[in-house]
């Protein structure tokens, strides 16, 4: 069973989110990186881009698969983790440390619609 920290919130598309004082940090879950296998490339969103809820905003590639990265909530991309360009394996090694992008939500209330750890555990188990 993969790790699902209780202090984070999750999307059904397997992103984790952490509210850091109005800016949301986003990565992919342990479960998602396990499914993908060895990650070889991350296409990061563009800083400054406006994204809608569940918009595709990047791509994560492993050797045999490619998975779109979705914005769990609408807002403006304010930072991306450039380290992942040269070291995408960080996502495999520590999925909850290797954040991918930070977003300033246009509607912070959307945070409430994300899943808590228990609800996300159910999503993972039902797959």
């Amino acid at each position: 069973m993969s790790e699902i920290p209780s202090d984070l919130k999750y999307s059904k598309s397997h992103e984790w989110t952490q509210d850091e004082g109005g800016v949301i940090t986003i990565g992919i879950t342990d479960h998602a990186q396990e499914l993908l296998g060895d990650i070889v490339f991350v296409e990061l969103p563009e800083v400054g881009a406006e994204v809608g809820t569940e918009d595709e905003c990047g791509v994560i590639e492993s050797v045999k698969a490619a998975s779109d990265l979705y914005a769990p909530l609408a807002g403006e991309i304010v930072a991306v983790n450039e380290e992942l360009v040269d070291a995408p394996e960080q996502i495999n090694e520590a999925p909850y440390e290797a954040w991918i992008f930070k977003l300033k939500p246009s509607n912070p209330a959307e945070m409430d619609e994300l899943l808590d750890a228990a609800a996300y555990t159910e999503v993972v188990e039902s797959e």
Binding site: V40, F41, E61, S62, V63, K64, A65, A66, D68
Partner: peptide, 13 residues
């Protein structure tokens, strides 16, 4: 290598 660019994996993308 880099097969994730290709149609057999990425299909419509």
């Amino acid at each position: 290598t880099l097969q994730a660019r290709e149609q057999h994996i990425r299909r419509s993308k």
